[in-house]
Amino acid sequence: MKRLIVISLISLLLAACAGQWTYVRDEDSRHISSGRYDLTVPARWVVLQKSDSLVVSRDGPELQKIVLHTRPHAKAFPRIKQSSSADMLPSDLGAHFIAELHAEDAQGLPSLKVDKEGPARLDGREGFRIEAHYDTADGVRYRLLAYGVADDKGYVDLFYTAPAIHYYARNLADFEAVRDSLKLH
């Protein structure tokens, strides 16, 4: 019994450290805010909100996820130890975003290849738009669509990734709706 309690407490502590997924039950809970952004997520998806990131998924992050990062310039790209600045060229921001993903010690990301890149706007700010793909060790191909900007307050990226078969196309419109709802402040 004592052992069970200890295990339960450890699990609770770990869950608290990792953050909690919350279910988006109704219209009211679709709107998410932080000091840096406002955003509307799809109903009946799940959300994991942390201090500098937000992950949204319908069926689980392996099947589709929308990720938002908001970071101060000095910690914009932690894995590659690069900073950003408000006047950084969008192509430089995009190159750092890709290098950061490459450096991620996770399934498939070392294989990431950019298909298309160019300028784009996110909440009216000039930035980058990148389309890419990567394969996991098990041979599953994922597609990725990303936007990123830098302003006076820091660096922001918003991306969507899902298996190329079925899932990517199915939830792309949901991602575009999230992107269009994003307001930075």
Partner: peptide
Amino acid sequence: DQRLRNRGL
């Protein structure tokens, strides 16, 4: 072999 190939290494 297959996994290394899949991972683009």
